[in-house]
Design a protein around this nucleic acid. Structure first.
Ligand SMILES: [Zn+2]
Ligand SMILES: [Zn+2]
Ligand SMILES: [Zn+2]
Ligand SMILES: [Zn+2]
Lengths: 142, 142
DNA sequence: TCTTGAACCTCTAGTCGCTAGAGATTGTAT
DNA sequence: ATACAATCTCTAGCGACTAGAGGTTCAAGA
């Protein structure tokens, strides 16, 4: 186990510049270097980066991942803080789904109502110009 | 109708720096100025900014809004390009909902499976470390 | 051993859609 | 005249990368 950054990249499916970025922000520890200053990674880097990547895929932000990693390193502590992080994330995903569902409905209505004639008669343009013609109180999409 | 940037901001509910930003990127035309170089807006700015704000609330990106505005200014043309823009956006919203729905399910499972004991036994940490323990092929959340 | 060339290095800047601040000027009400 | 809120320009920062320039190192084949 003595992987170049390219090897690690292929193995974990994280791009090379992203790995360097994670090192820069202190998410992945700086590995040892060859005499020519090239990075060489070991098994612990593979598993840590896999964790990071999986958590990113699941939508956690870097701050949350930082906390999750530090919890994972303390196996005797209660896992409650980790649960809290996941719960918070779940709630934000649910809020997001609710917003997007309203949005989808609004967009579908716009497309259904459109008569596909000249812009002058286009419902899409009219609705965009006037939120009162919307069916829902879709909030801002954040 | 001769609104300061603050008046316009309150009327359309778009923050002052955002209005200046829209001017900078060419989304909102530069208004006339007072002798002391302060911006003064008219009715056409109110309606254009309302359009922009509504489209942003509906999740359209600036490029799409640019195209929609330029279409809106040509009332005799076919509205098909506008419909296309909305359709593209709808499809991306639908993809996003599908991803987030998978994600929600995964996060719920993680929370359900967790025994709330020490980190060593925490399913959340275990699943994060190993995607094979996931129920779904949740893709990357983009 | 030498030579090639892919992979690596650092550093800077760009993405998107704002948001925040500094420091100076203008408008308006008393 | 004075005070003070609002405005001005300019620059930098957010999150999570991504792209590129310009230079160096590694590893494989001749
Ligand atoms: Zn139409
Ligand atoms: Zn609306
Ligand atoms: Zn747990
Ligand atoms: Zn997974």
């Amino acid at each position: 186990m003595d992987l170049s950054i390219g090897d690690l990249s292929r193995r974990v499916a994280v791009k090379v510049p992203t790995i360097r970025y994670y090192e820069q922000i202190g998410l992945l520890p700086a590995p040892p270097r060859t005499e020519g200053r090239q990075r060489r990674y070991g098994a612990e880097h593979v598993s840590r980066l896999s964790f990071i990547r999986h958590a990113r895929d699941l939508g956690f932000d870097v701050e949350a991942i930082r906390e999750l990693l530090s919890l994972a390193a303390q196996p005797d502590q209660s896992c409650e803080p980790a649960d809290q992080i996941v719960l918070r994330h779940l709630e934000s995903v649910e809020r997001r789904i609710a917003q997007l569902t309203l949005l989808r409905s609004e967009l579908r209505h716009m497309l259904e109502d459109c008569r596909h004639g000249p812009v002058r008669e286009c419902r899409i343009i009219q609705v965009l110009a006037d939120h009162d013609q919307c069916r829902h109180e879709h909030g801002k999409v954040s």
